[in-house]
C-alpha cells in the first residue's frame, strides 16, 4: 500500500482535519459518554483516601478534607491487627498471596480457555461434521440455566474427584471452554475470508496447520479482545473459588477482599478498606489492558499494510 493511502488513517488517530458541525456533535457525545463512564469511579478513589472515621460525615464532599493512605496500607496488610481493628477494620488479609493466586488462576484459565475455545470455534465456523449446529446450539443453551441450580452438582463432582481445596478444582470448570468464548470466536471466524484457507488446503496443509498458522494470526484482534474480557471475568470470579478453596493461602483476591464486605446480618461493610482494595485489585488488570491494547493497535497497523 502506498503512503498516500495510509496517511489519512494514521492522521485520523490524532488530528481532526475538518471541524464540521457533525464532528463537533460527535466529539461532544464521546466526551459526555466518557465523563459518565469515569465519574462514578471517583467514589472508589475518594472513599479509598478517606479516613474511616470521616467517611460518613463527609459523604457529600467531593474530596476528603484530610486525604490519607491509611486504607491502602490496611488493604495491603501493612498495619497491625490492633491498629486495623481500632479504626473499625476487619482482620488483616494477605494481599500479596491473594494477588499471586489470582494471577496464577487467571493466567491458567485465560490461556487454556482461549485456546480450546478457539479450536472449537474454528470447527463450528468452518469444518463440516454431522451434528455441528446442534452441538453449537447446545453450547449456547448451556448459558441459559441460572448458576444457582448448577453449582451444587458441579461442586459435588469436584469433591468426588478429590479436588476440593486444590488449584485444579478451582480452575476445572473454566479451563476447557466457556460458551461465551466459543460463540464469540465463531462469529469472528465466520467473517474471515475463505480464500486464504482454501489456498492453504490446496497446498496440502492440514486443518491444524491452517488453524494455527492462518486463522489464529489473522484473528489477533478478536483473540486479544476475548483474552482481555476473559481476564477481567476470571479476575472477578468470586463464588466458585470461594466455595472450593478452604485455606487462606489458596484464596484469590476476590475471596480475600470479601472480608471487607458485610460481615454481619445488619452490619455495614468496611467501606474505606473495600474501596482501597478494589482500587489496588484493578491496577494489574488495567496495566494488562493497556499493554494488550497496544498489541491490538500494532496488529491492526500490521494487517493494514498487507
Amino acid at each position: 500500500m502506498n503512503p498516500v493511502e495510509t496517511n489519512p488513517i494514521r492522521v485520523r488517530n490524532r488530528v481532526v482535519y475538518q471541524l464540521t458541525p457533525g464532528r463537533i456533535v460527535a466529539w461532544v457525545l464521546l466526551a459526555v459518554l466518557i465523563f459518565i463512564t469515569l465519574f462514578p469511579l471517583w467514589i472508589v478513589i475518594k472513599t479509598a483516601i478517606t479516613h474511616p472515621k470521616e467517611l460518613f460525615e463527609q459523604a457529600t464532599l467531593l474530596f476528603p478534607s484530610d486525604p490519607t493512605l491509611l486504607n491502602f496500607r490496611r488493604a495491603l496488610g501493612m498495619v497491625s491487627l490492633e491498629e486495623n481493628l481500632a479504626v473499625g477494620g476487619v482482620a488483616n488479609i494477605n494481599f500479596l498471596t491473594a494477588m499471586r493466586n489470582s494471577v496464577l488462576f487467571t493466567l491458567t484459565i485465560v490461556v487454556s480457555q482461549t485456546f480450546f475455545s478457539a479450536m472449537a470455534a474454528y470447527a463450528f465456523a468452518r469444518l463440516r461434521f454431522p451434528g455441528r449446529d446442534l452441538i453449537f446450539f447446545l453450547f449456547l443453551a448451556a448459558t441459559m440455566i441460572p448458576g444457582a441450580v448448577l453449582f451444587i452438582p458441579n461442586f459435588i463432582l469436584v469433591k468426588n474427584l478429590g479436588w476440593l481445596n486444590t488449584f485444579q478444582g478451582m480452575v476445572a470448570p473454566f479451563v476447557l471452554m466457556t460458551p461465551f468464548a466459543v460463540f464469540f470466536l465463531r462469529q469472528f471466524f465466520l467473517a474471515v475470508p475463505k480464500e486464504l484457507e482454501e489456498a492453504a488446503y490446496l497446498d496440502g496443509a492440514s486443518p491444524f496447520y491452517v488453524f494455527w498458522r492462518i486463522i489464529l494470526p489473522i484473528s489477533k484482534t478478536p483473540l486479544v479482545t476475548l483474552a482481555i474480557l476473559t481476564t477481567i471475568n476470571t479476575w472477578n470470579e468470586f463464588f466458585w473459588p470461594w466455595i472450593v478453596s478452604k485455606d487462606n493461602n489458596m484464596q484469590v483476591l476476590t475471596v480475600a477482599l470479601k472480608m471487607f464486605q458485610s460481615q454481619t446480618p445488619q452490619g455495614s461493610p468496611d467501606w474505606t478498606g473495600l474501596m482501597a482494595a478494589t482500587f489496588l485489585a484493578i491496577i494489574p488488570v488495567f496495566i494488562l489492558l493497556v499493554v494488550l491494547g497496544r498489541q491490538v493497535v500494532e496488529s491492526l497497523q500490521f494487517s493494514g499494510l498487507k
Binding site: 469444518l127 470448570p173 471452554m177
Partner: peptide, 8 residues
C-alpha cells in the same frame, strides 16, 4: 477440534 471444549 471440539473435543476438549466438549468435555468441559
Amino acid at each position: 477440534f471440539i473435543l476438549p471444549a466438549f468435555i468441559g
